[in-house]
Each structure stands twice: as structure tokens, then as C-alpha cells.
Design a binder for these strands. Structure first.
Lengths: 201, 201
DNA sequence: ACCCCGCCATGACAGATGTCATGACGGGGC
DNA sequence: GCCCCGTCATGACATCTGTCATGGCGGGGT
């Protein structure tokens, strides 16, 4: 019997996943949580064999939660599951010690297969995404550039960003210019989009 | 026996929904599709009692699909289901003849309840979202302003938008300026965000 | 010690952006 | 018929952005 922990902020898909996995004779869902910072607690209580974590969650990012869980309970294998197949997510998930990475486009069979494979000690990764991940590579952005770009996401002016980060406007523009250059974009907004799609934000 | 059609582009959640609904003794999933333009076809073949449509789908928007389905098979009740609780989506779904609107944050019980209620001829709407929808109101944007703003989403320059829409640059800037004013934003990017969050795009 | 790199800052410049006034055209609505 | 509104356009203007050169500061690496 493979004991599984589910973490997803959307109750509907969480429940649906539980129902689907519950249909398998060798899988049992032992815990369900809706926020990233509940993961480790729940895992300590129920000691699952496999944890299925969504990336998008309130409280704590699914990727940080994966790292935390891997550190706290190394025996619990982690699968990261996400709506968006962003190359950077895969890289970060693997760096966080995840054993598997599944996109929500995958078939139901692939998910239960992934659970079994991961439980058996194997790694499960979408090959297409792995190739993309290698092609895109690691983020070329420095920490500050990422900060600035992340804040620029919600459409503030340079002055807003400077105030929020306690920087001079000129510095902000320099960071933005560098980010634009590195992402190959021609606009701040485009740079945000590209960085986001690559999972660099 | 309530016959249900499922439409969602993410195979994993589609399968999970099917598994969950299949557990109910009075519900039967008779069709699953992954694109908006397959909905009517599948419905014609399987004549479901209730159709559960996701908003985000390739091919054809879940909202347009809802309108089409309602026109083609009025006897089939439609529930629109979405990740994002955008007020404008609710309004458009209702305008399209949908009988229910469910966000993916809802509990599994709420979904099966919604299916039964809708099948019984009732309307099902999240009250919180309904209030928000009334507060936000209909989109203040004209068709052209919406077009321009939608294109501006991926971060092109004014020149790019003008070329794509076969307009003069000045006209594009006028439309953008109007959209910025109407949304209460102070930047093009902010206007995009606000309009998107309201479901106006 | 030296150099490279990230970070912060300043100043200057060209080009893009947002605003405004103004005007033309066509389609409703009263 | 008249007026309002949406669409498209032009021109002008102030401001914001993106780029570049330049320089100071501090932390590693070799």
C-alpha cells in the first residue's frame, strides 16, 4: 500500500485527485493539505511514502515546500505537479530533491505510474520538458534583476519600483535594461513574460 | 442517472474529475473532451444532461463553447468551471446561457451538488463571486480598446500593435490611453492586469 | 594583490509613451 | 434632422523608458 500526501490549493482538483488515486488498489491517500506551509506538519503526522505537491500554493511555494519536506523526511519521495510546464520549475524541483515532475496535461495513467515508479525509487520526468529545460538553461538574471523584474510584473512605473526597493530610479532602470538584454526582449513587459515562461521569476 | 460531459484541456484534472463524479451513484460521465470546439459534437453524440466546461481551453473558449452548446442543445444544462474567479467570466457565462458557475477552489461536495441542482433545473452561483461581479460591473472598454489591450498583453511596442491591427500608431495610443483612463490604471501594463483580473479581456 | 563580478549610483541622450485638442466618418436613438 | 458615440486619424507636448559611459564599493578566486 503506497501512502500518498496531496497538496494543492484548489480543493476541487485536490478532491478529484484523491478520488482518482483512491481507485487504485495499491494507493491510499493519507493526507490532504491546501497550503505549502502545512506540508511538513502533515507529513510528520502521517508519514506518507509519496508527496504530490502543486507548485502554485498560498503560504509557501510548492518548490520550497518540496525542499523542506525532502530535508525533514528524506524517506518521503516528492513529486512536483504543475499546470505550467516551465523549464525553470523542473530545474528548481530537481534541485529541491524532488523525485518526479508531472504536468497537469499528462494522462491519469501517467500520474499513477509516476507515483508507483517514484515509490520504487525511480525518477520520473517528462522527457520533452527535460529537453526544454536543458535548452533554456539556468536563469541568466542576477538576484537584483529578478527582484526588479518580479515587481515590474504588476505594472508599476520605475519610480514605484525604486520606492519599493529603496533604490535610485537610475539603478532600477539599469537593472531593467540588463534584464531586457539578457532575456532577449525589447520591452520591460516582454522581458517579464519571457522570464515568467521560463520559470525564472 | 445524470449523464455528464466533461471538457477540460488538462487531461489529469479531467480524468480526476471523471473519477470523482463516477463515484457518485447517480452520476455517469458519458463524454470527455479536451478542446472547446469538440464540445458540441460530443454532446450531439452522447446527449448529456449536464456539461461541465472549463473556461481555459484550446480551440474554443469555454464561454463561447457554452453559448454554442446552449444554442445547439438547449436541453443540456451547462456548468462553467474555472480556476480564476474573475467577475467578468461569471457575467459572460450567464449571458451565454450557463446554469451554473463553479470555481476550482470549491469543495468536491459543492461540485456534485451543483451538478444535481443544475440537473434539477436550478441555477448555481457562488454568492461571493456574484457580489463581486455586480460590484465590478460590465466592462467599460469598447471593442477596439479591448482588442488593443489584449494584444498589448504580450508586451509589444505601439508600432507592433499598430501593424498587427492595421491601424496608425496614434490611434493605438489613443485607444490605450482611453483604456488606461477607464481602468483607473497609470500604465499600460497595469491596465492589462486590471482588465484581466476583472475578466474583461 | 589583483581582477572579475554583482550592486549601486549619476548624468546624458534618443526614442517610446501617455495625454490632449481637434477633426472626419458612420450608425443608432430620440 | 440632430446629437451622441465609437472608430480612426493627425500633430504637438511633457514625461517616461531604455541605453550607454563612467565610477565607487565589496566579496570571492587565483
Amino acid at each position: 500500500m503506497i501512502k500518498v500526501l496531496l497538496a494543492d490549493d484548489q480543493a476541487l482538483v485536490r478532491g478529484a485527485f484523491a478520488a482518482m488515486l483512491g481507485l487504485e488498489p495499491d494507493i491510499e491517500v493519507v493526507a490532504e493539505v491546501s497550503a505549502g506551509d502545512e506540508v511538513v506538519d502533515a507529513a510528520r503526522r502521517t508519514s506518507p511514502d509519496v508527496a504530490l505537491l502543486d507548485v502554485q500554493m498560498p503560504g509557501k511555494d510548492g518548490l520550497s515546500a518540496a525542499a523542506e519536506l525532502h530535508a525533514a523526511l528524506p524517506s518521503c519521495r516528492v513529486i512536483v505537479c504543475t499546470t505550467f510546464g516551465r523549464p525553470g520549475y523542473l530545474a528548481r524541483a530537481m534541485a529541491a530533491g524532488a523525485a518526479g515532475f508531472v504536468v497537469k496535461d499528462a494522462s491519469p495513467e501517467q500520474l499513477v505510474d509516476a507515483v508507483r515508479r517514484v515509490h520504487a525509487g525511480l525518477r520520473v520526468v517528462d522527457p520533452t520538458l527535460a529537453a526544454e529545460s536543458l535548452a533554456v538553461g539556468r536563469s541568466p538574471l542576477t538576484d537584483r534583476e529578478r527582484d526588479v523584474l518580479a515587481l515590474a510584473r504588476d505594472g508599476g512605473t520605475v519610480a514605484d519600483l525604486a520606492k519599493a526597493l529603496h533604490l535610485s530610479e537610475g539603478t532600477v532602470r539599469n537593472h531593467l535594461s540588463a534584464a531586457i538584454g539578457k532575456t532577449g526582449a525589447r520591452t520591460r513587459a516582454e522581458a517579464v513574460r519571457l522570464a515568467e515562461d521560463s520559470g525564472w521569476l
